[in-house]
Amino acid sequence: MSSVLETRGLTMRFGGVTAVDTVDFNLQRKELRCLIGPNGAGKSTFFKCLTGQLKPSDGQVFIDGAETTGWDPHQVARLGVGIKTQVPSVMDGLSVRENIWLAANRTHGREQARHRAADAIERLDLGTIANSEVGRLSHGERQRVELGIVIAGEPWLILLDEPAAGMTAEEVDRMADIIVDLNREAAIIIVEHDMQFIRSIARKVTVFSQGRILMEDDVDAVMQDQQVRDVYLGKKA
């Protein structure tokens, strides 16, 4: 009923490889969902079909009731969808403040955007490096800058691809807090590998395997499941 994101039979083929295979997915308003699965399970491809970075071979995507199949990324973003990519996608040659200001400036005037950017900087504790050039920052800081860019767009649906990748334990904790905080206003989908991280934030988890949804349940139930252990966790141990 209050589904904000839905896919029906979503399929993505690359030549003979079917990376995403007839996936039916549903996300409720203000839900927090994690997508997990082994490498090559199709999580990121699925993710890119949602954001418009890839055009699905088959099936449909609906965001907030509107069909967005085959839309361009900027059109998807304009619906109020914030997207964080796997490798931090930031503007290296510009300052942190400029990066975040640019995101806010799309929907707000120059001054208003400045306030929004300042808010996001404070919220993510980027104050001390606000005027630094992003290219000179550490990986963890760049991840946070990208999140700042996402926040500044005031999204109601946030798609995060591996937000904790390559971060220190302390940074991961902080990221988890930020995500829980963001979840108060927005529905969030997270693609993640770090099980510790997922345990600390997730309620419902969707497990991908070979392009299909293997199971979808509470985080604890998923962790207990033997099949999931076999395809994913078992390999890791």
């Binding site: 970075q53 990324p73 973003a77 304009r78 996608s89 503007m91 290296d92 640019l102 799309r106 767009g153």
Partner: peptide, 17 residues
């Protein structure tokens, strides 16, 4: 400023909308 941002990272600017 957006033009310079596009030079820096086209994908990001697109994802901003």
């Amino acid at each position: 400023r957006v033009a310079v941002a596009i030079r820096e990272n086209e994908q990001r600017v697109e994802l901003m909308g």
